[in-house]
Amino acid sequence: MEIPVFTLDSFTNLPFKGNPAAVCPLVHELNDDLYQKIAAEMNLSETAFITTINPSDTFTTGSRFRLRWFTPTTEVNLCGHATLASAAVLFQYKKNVNPRLVFETKSGDLTVTQKKDGYIMDFPLNPPTQQDPENFKDIIKAAVGNLPIQGVFLSTTMKKLIIRLSDSCDRSALTGLNVDPAALLSVETDGQIKALIVTMKGSPDCQPGYDFYSRNFAPWVGIPEDPVTGSAHTVLGSYWSKELGKKKMLAYQCSSRGGELELEVRDDGRINIAGEVVTVLQGIIRL
């Protein structure tokens, strides 16, 4: 069996920046064990598998596809950067003729449309609720040490915990964090958290004008640090929109690779997440 595979860097216009995802367009479904083995072999934060839904459709003519995402260790319910990469493969390499594509996923229908310099994804919004920091003191200590924090918030639907650093912190406090994934795993074992997000207010007055910064750690799903995370911004976008009183925001995830996300919180309880994509590899998996 030969399976086409693409590796694309999402939320960037430069190779080796942003977040890499592998994308496999499949003529028919494979079994879950094989999906997981391919994802482990690719060893990226996510490998996406696209299949047609209507038997008469092709990757060029179809407008609805099934989409699944696997980390090296498990399947996940929502992934932004691999959705962006999947749309890019269909539009750029399969020459899809439709103005927009709909992906049927474990998080419902996700729509992606082309824009001048990238793609816009229509994602669910996942508002977090404020928490008592005392209930999370061990994970806070493991993540940010003694840095001052401004609040702790949890999205129970996404199992993502947000730690907001104090506005008195410089951006270097966030970029300089050295988070030990083993320490996170040892202090959070009950399954209520699958990702830890550390965030801080941005500098909208400085070019290019980022409204907030973040980093994302998810060792619970086999990703010590995810470089640029679309799903995290379904939570961050909701939080910062209320905090800043803005619907449209520019966000930067300041991992070592770094990536930029354009956000628009909508009145219908969803969020547009836009970004650019660069292809770095095209090949064939032989089984």
Rank of each mutant, 00 (worst) to 15 (best):
L44S: 05
N96H: 00
Y93T: 10
T61Y: 01
G108Q: 02
A87C: 06
T105A: 03
A40G: 14
N96Q: 08
T47I: 04
E46C: 09
P55R: 03
M42I: 08
S63L: 00
S107F: 04
F70C: 12
P99M: 01
I50R: 05
F49R: 07
T51R: 04
V102Y: 03
P99Q: 14
G108N: 09
V97L: 13
R100T: 15
F49I: 10
A88W: 04
F103P: 03
T83H: 11
S45I: 05
A88T: 13
H81N: 14
F103E: 10
N77Q: 12
A82G: 15
S86H: 11
E104A: 03
N54R: 01
L90A: 08
T71G: 15
P72Y: 12
A48N: 02
F103Y: 02
T52N: 08
I53E: 01
A82F: 09
D109C: 05
K94M: 11
A48Y: 03
T74K: 11
P55Y: 02
N98S: 09
E46W: 02
F91P: 02
T105G: 04
E104I: 06
I50T: 10
A88F: 12
F70P: 04
N98M: 00
L110K: 11
C79P: 09
T105P: 03
K94L: 13
L44I: 07
S56R: 08
F59N: 13
F59Y: 07
F49C: 08
L110T: 06
C79H: 07
T74E: 14
A88H: 13
L84D: 11
T73N: 12
K106F: 12
K94Q: 15
T71F: 13
K95E: 07
I53V: 05
F49G: 14
P99T: 02
F49K: 08
G80N: 01
L90R: 07
E104M: 08
S107A: 10
S63D: 00
K94T: 11
T73V: 15
V102T: 11
P99Y: 01
T52S: 04
F91K: 00
T52C: 12
V102R: 01
A85L: 05
N43I: 11
Q92I: 11
P55L: 04
R64F: 04
T74F: 09
S56I: 07
L101C: 00
L110D: 11
L90D: 12
E46F: 02
V76H: 06
T51V: 15
S56P: 01
L101Y: 00
R68G: 14
T58E: 05
T60W: 05
E41T: 11
Y93D: 14
E41V: 03
E41F: 10
N98Y: 00
N77D: 14
T83F: 05
S63F: 00
S86F: 12
A82Q: 11
V102P: 03
Y93V: 07
T73P: 12
F91V: 00
S86L: 10
G108P: 09
A88D: 11
P55V: 04
A40L: 15
N98K: 00
G62V: 09
R100Y: 09
E104F: 03
D109Y: 08
K94R: 13
T73L: 15
Y93A: 07
T52W: 01
S107G: 02
K94S: 08
S45Y: 06
I53C: 01
G62W: 01
R64P: 02
S86I: 13
L101A: 03
